[in-house]
Design a protein around this nucleic acid. Structure first.
Lengths: 126, 126
DNA sequence: AGTTGTTCCGTGTGTGGTAATGGTACATCT
DNA sequence: AGATGTACCATTACCACACACGGAACAACT
């Protein structure tokens, strides 16, 4: 598994990590069940902060691409191949796009939408 | 029509203007068909920039509270009384709240939602 | 000629979010 | 003992945006 992190790249480091791991799975360089290096170890290898790697791992686990078995290490998810190709954000963008374009058609200003958005984000109605 | 603008108030100046004009209509201090001072004149009276007053007027016109008849001046909208009580933003917030909480329940990160939001705002799908 | 609403250019300040860094601590497994 | 993922505290730099301000110009009305 060869991972290259480019600090000069405007793409966030944790995003680079996530993308490259997903790519490695799609290219079958890593297969379901394989073990991944620990957060601290990978952070050392790539000269990154362990928090940055932890963030990437957390996102990958949420997307069911990897599985962290607690103290036993982290492994590639059984259905990692399918889930690596899924783009959760696409659905999110579609959903928001619908609500936003509805607002725009109703004549709501962009800045008003932005204000309403941060209102909705900060409210605790989960 | 007595309008008071408080510069120290954290509420934006144009918002104060909008609210007070709506209040004046609800309290029947101004009635449908009445003429409103011009943008520049009101800006002078309140010691505001004309842009600030123009912004307030534009919003009031969108909400069908006032009517600008081009070069003939600005007047109170026939149905101003009803429209002054409506809160467009409330509907917007509700609509966004629905989409956002759906995303959160799907496990989408707050920052991911924000990114998707700015994506949707910048896209040209009107 | 003067005023109307509108639109374009721009400047400056303040707020808030993201990204990344660091340190410390925890319970649990090998 | 040593490593695991995870949680909390924090700071720094950057960037996008809201708000308000200023100047200038436009076409069309009185």
């Amino acid at each position: 598994m060869e991972i290259t992190i480019d600090i000069e790249d405007p793409i966030p480091l944790f995003t680079q990590l996530v993308e490259q791991i997903k790519a490695a799975i799609i290219e079958s360089k890593i297969k379901p069940g394989d073990s991944l290096p620990s957060i601290r170890q990978l952070a050392n290898d790539l000269e990154l902060n362990s928090k940055t790697v932890a963030k990437a791992y957390k996102l990958l686990e949420r997307d069911l691409v990897i599985q962290s078995r607690g103290y036993r290490g982290t492994f590639v998810h059984p259905e990692a191949l399918i889930n690596s190709k899924m783009d959760l954000n696409a659905d999110v963008i579609a959903q928001l796009n619908f609500a936003i374009s509805a607002c725009k058609k109703a004549g709501v200003t962009d800045s008003e939408i932005r204000i309403a958005f941060s209102c909705a984000m900060n409210s605790k109605n989960n």
